[in-house]
Amino acid sequence: MTIILNGEPRAVAAGALDAALAELGYGGAHVATAVNGEFVPRDARAGITLREGDRLEVLAPLQGG
């Protein structure tokens, strides 16, 4: 299926969010996730199933003012 990862369309096979993150190259990364604008805590990722067209945001620490 195709999801929107950080604003860009991406094909992903896995349905569960934790598996999809690993497939997309985020395995072990220190990131926070949101699906369709809702925060998904780390320990809830396994219970979230991605669907076609879902918007997945993967955010990490960066410089800020």
Binding site: N6, G7, L24, G25, Y26, A29, H30, V31, A32, E57, V58, L59, A60, P61, L62, Q63, G64, G65
Partner: peptide, 19 residues
């Protein structure tokens, strides 16, 4: 110090280094 959250590219992992 103030910090922010931004989109992380899987390949670059810029956020990890910053953190």
């Amino acid at each position: 110090v103030t910090v922010s959250l931004r989109r992380e590219a899987a390949e670059a992992r810029a956020g990890q280094a910053f953190w």
